[in-house]
């Protein structure tokens, strides 16, 4: 049986109100002793691999995007057996409601929610506002690491078609549907490739995928890091904004696919757009690929057949 829904009116307005919970809701579930049960698991996913260890929401287990979700050698996610083992070890069953939260405005939490969705986990929700809001509200953290009893989790093959786009898919998509580039304006124009002395994910070319429109991820959130209301999101991405309609095939991307997961979540779950894929290769792949079209500057650019 899934955990109850959050009845907050703002949440109820979203297309899928069962995908977002408030900090108040989670605090109530905690007080009721529901966190860490077969019914409800809380997962923390951060950019910083040590942040969970400095303190986390009581009963929350950690899932790290680098060391848990990605394979150490190939640039791909873990397979069905690996996913089953990961969730079973965290005490999560196929029917467990999972609430994910994390640092940096839930970027990595949304990324985890997206990966869990690739494996078809039915009930994955985000804690609106993430770790920052929980801390800002003065809510408690603990360093006590839970040791959940291992659960049974079936081996389910990852669906790489419905919500995931590869480079070839994106090439075929240009000119056939909206592309949303959610990076900073400087990354979109190609003005900035990387940060001096921070040789992160080296990229050779700057700019954006032809026809992509720039809507930085932060456009979707309010000052406290929670998602904007449904009406506000519609004004940004749909009528009055990008003009995306329910029939559109949409692809989101950023640099490594985590910030675009945050937008993917808003488009698919909060606005209810059916066909939204996240291109996780994103700019670290596109900006290094041979003979793919790139547009520099602040205009989306044309589709050249």
């Amino acid at each position: 049986m899934p955990a109850p829904l959050d009845p907050t009116p703002r949440i109820a307005e979203y297309a899928h109100p069962d995908r977002l919970v408030t900090t108040e809701w989670l605090a109530e579930q905690l007080a009721a002793g529901n966190v860490g049960t077969a019914q409800l698991a809380v997962v923390e996913s951060d950019e910083d691999v040590l942040l969970y260890e400095t303190g986390h929401i009581a009963g929350a287990v950690k899932v790290d995007w680098h060391t848990d979700l990605l394979q150490p050698v190939e640039r791909d996610y873990l397979d069905g057996a690996g996913f089953a083992a990961l969730l079973a070890e965290r005490g999560i069953g196929r029917d467990t409601t999972i609430v994910v939260y994390g640092d940096k405005n839930n970027w990595w939490a949304a990324y985890t929610a997206w990966v869990f969705t690739l494996f078809g986990h039915e009930d994955v929700r985000l804690l609106d506002g993430g770790r920052n809001l929980w801390v800002a509200e003065g809510r408690e953290l603990t360093t006590e690491v839970p040791t959940p009893a291992a659960a049974d989790y079936p081996v389910v093959e990852r669906d790489d078609v419905t919500f995931r786009a590869f480079k070839e898919d994106v090439l075929a998509h240009i000119g056939h549907g909206p592309l949303v580039d959610i990076r900073s304006p400087q990354e979109y124009t190609g003005e900035r490739l990387h940060i001096p002395d921070y040789p992160e994910e080296g990229v050779l070319r700057g700019g954006h995928i032809p026809t992509a429109r720039s809507v930085p991820w932060a456009t979707a959130v309010a000052a406290d890091g929670t998602y904007k209301t449904r009406a506000e999101l519609e004004g940004i991405y749909q009528e009055g904004g990008l003009g995306i309609t329910g029939d559109d095939d949409v692809v989101t991307y950023c640099r490594i696919g985590e910030r675009s997961s945050h937008t993917w979540f808003a488009l698919h779950f909060l606005l209810g757009l059916e066909k939204v894929r996240n291109y996780d290769g994103s700019w670290t792949e596109w900006g290094n690929a041979v003979r793919v079209p790139i547009v520099a500057g602040d205009q989306p650019g044309e589709y050249a057949a």
Partner: peptide, 12 residues
């Protein structure tokens, strides 16, 4: 346990 990408921050 930390990942090479994150360690590149220290290299930086």
């Amino acid at each position: 346990s930390v990942s090479p990408l994150r360690l590149s921050g220290m290299t930086g």
